[in-house]
């Protein structure tokens, strides 16, 4: 059996008339890196705060190792949090910040010193003990915040968009460092972000959220390759979302053409959303394509060109390492495996 450490069971949270979370069900395994991913306002931070104990769910149960902890105050929970803006204690130096939790546990001075030194090495800031918090850069403050939480050896570490305030390069470096720390310490990480790339890079499991509900839970590869609906597809990476009709199993019609695909189980002639990643469209000569279109614009993106192609009154986004000039006619081919069909989401 899988070793489950936290379970959210039918969790709802209302602020007045606002339903921030609607019936969230989620379990977190020991030692896994789970990411709550979604746009701002989707409820991911609220979910994290419920696990941390800073918010009470309106309905539902939160279980820690099978025991209900709904009413347990934050200071009694065996989880620690890295806050969005670090929330370091500005009236203390680095050492005192990291030692705060240990002093409360009344460990002896020598042990505290050793643990703090060890932590500063783990986050690559050895010798920073006596620095004042204000003198540190954003990236350094971030590491201190992580060290301050980790030094308590929590069962679960909660991270609320911890890299949000850092610049791109620093963020990428910290992503890898965080993943390393997680693997070395074996602590369960629950990570909140709106950055899909960050989620894909670091996570073992991703839960995609929208409007207070979980849209899909799965490994990064699952979520990227087999998005459950158009929202997930669009949020995780770029995609073309086209309305189509499922003719029969493994045959879908869109853009005036019937494509072979690998999806089954829809009703015959059922309306579906078809999702195709920009990098999965192969550009060929006009007459060789399954469908054809006219290149409307080309943008150089570094590794590839991004082209917008008008085809059957729809604009397609296509990534290719070969540039086709604007206004040229091109053919497009799509492999059966790269066509993802999904049920239409009706209400929006």
């Amino acid at each position: 059996m899988q070793d489950e450490i936290i379970r959210l069971s039918n969790i709802s949270k209302n602020y007045g008339a606002n339903e921030t979370l609607k019936n969230i069900n989620l379990y977190i395994l020991r030692n896994e890196f789970l990411t709550l991913l979604g746009p701002s306002g989707c409820g991911k931070t609220t979910t994290l705060r419920i696990i941390g104990g800073f918010e009470q769910p309106t309905k539902g149960e939160i279980l820690f190792e099978g025991v209900n902890i709904n009413t347990l105050p934050p200071f009694k929970r065996r989880v620690n949090t890295v806050f969005q803006k670090y929330a370091l204690f500005t009236h203390m130096d680095v050492y005192e910040n990291i030692a705060f939790g240990l002093k409360i546990k009344k460990l002896d001075k020598k042990t505290i010193e050793n643990k703090v030194t060890e932590m500063l090495e783990l986050v690559n800031l050895p010798g920073y003990e006596k620095r004042s918090v204000d003198s540190l850069s954003g990236g350094e403050q971030q590491r201190i915040a992580i060290a301050r939480a980790l030094v308590n050896e929590p069962e679960v570490l909660l991270l609320d968009e911890p890299l949000g305030a850092l610049d791109l390069k620093l963020r990428k470096g910290m992503q890898i460092e965080l993943k390393n720390i997680q693997q070395r310490t074996g602590i369960t990480f629950v990570y909140v972000t709106h950055d899909q790339e960050e989620a894909l890079t670091m996570s073992d499991t991703i839960a995609v959220m929208k409007n207070g509900t979980i849209q899909q839970i799965g490994t990064p590869a699952d979520i990227y390759n087999e998005p459950k609906n158009a929202f997930v597809a669009d949020f995780i990476g770029e995609s073309n979302i086209i309305s189509g009709t499922m003719i029969e199993d493994c045959l879908v019609e869109f853009s005036g053409h019937r494509f072979e695909c690998v999806d089954k189980g829809f009703g015959n002639s059922e309306k579906v959303d078809v999702v195709i990643r920009p990098e999965d469209v192969k550009l060929v000569d006009a007459q060789e394509g399954m469908i054809e279109g006219i290149v409307k614009s080309v943008v150089f993106k570094g590794v590839h060109y991004e082209m917008i192609i008008l085809c059957n009154n729809l604009l397609w986004k296509v990534h290719s390492t070969v540039m086709e000039p604007v206004n040229s006619r091109v053919g497009m081919r799509i492999l059966p495996n790269d066509i993802h069909t999904m049920k239409k989401v009706l209400d929006e």
Binding site: G52, G53, F54, P73, F75, A87, F89, N152
Partner: peptide
């Protein structure tokens, strides 16, 4: 900053200790 107070509680400080130390 309210999150500083939450951080103290998160690190195990009771409301009394949070007041005294933070």
């Amino acid at each position: 900053n309210k999150s500083v107070i939450e951080a103290a509680e998160d690190l195990g400080a009771t409301p009394m200790v949070t007041f005294k130390r933070i």
